[in-house]
Amino acid sequence: MITLTNRSKPVNRKKMTFLESIYIWNTFIGMMITLKHFFKKKVTYQYPEQTRPYSPVFRGVQILNRDEEGRERCTACGLCAVACPAEAITMEAAERLPGEENLYREEKYAAKYEINMLRCIFCGFCEEACPKDAIYLSETHAPAAYNRKNFIYNKQDLLIPNPKTQPEEYAQAKGLREINKKKK
């Protein structure tokens, strides 16, 4: 017989001996195995106090990025919404007025930008689709909420803190992954 792996074992169809048929000895062997596990190190993470390190490719809640001067990068092109298989993203575009150059990087910006966390499947396609490096999947996950409305994240929820006015929070939000990596 050709086997795919060398781990496969042919089924043993021999008739059981009397000792096997009363199961006591085999149960005893099994009990020794479970007893070994009884004293093994436990793998549990005590969740709220201890968190599990995420893998480097973890995809969590989206974050809307800013450039070095703290301007929003998103230009409301809608490519992320098109790419989204779950149709979780909605947005409304607006034109940048004179004097708002310090707020928005492009001439068009997203006045409203919402992601429905109940629809999002965290596939990361929006991140791939974005031509402006404006959206990233971060290492946090959406917390539980009591009603559906709270799962629709608007622009304020998604925007990364301003690197100019809140440099610390910005570094934290941006570099969480790098910090974690260094820790490991």
């Binding site: 048929s21 009363i22 199961y23 149960t27 099994g30 009990m31 195995i33 479970t34 007893l35």
Partner: peptide, 26 residues
């Protein structure tokens, strides 16, 4: 409890075989 968390449940015919054909003669 140790046994409970070690072995799976018997099939019904295994249960009856064990009871009538093994344990009672023993």
């Amino acid at each position: 409890m140790w046994i409970r968390w070690t072995v799976p449940r018997f099939r019904y015919d295994q249960l009856m075989t064990l009871g009538w054909k093994k344990l009672i003669p023993l």
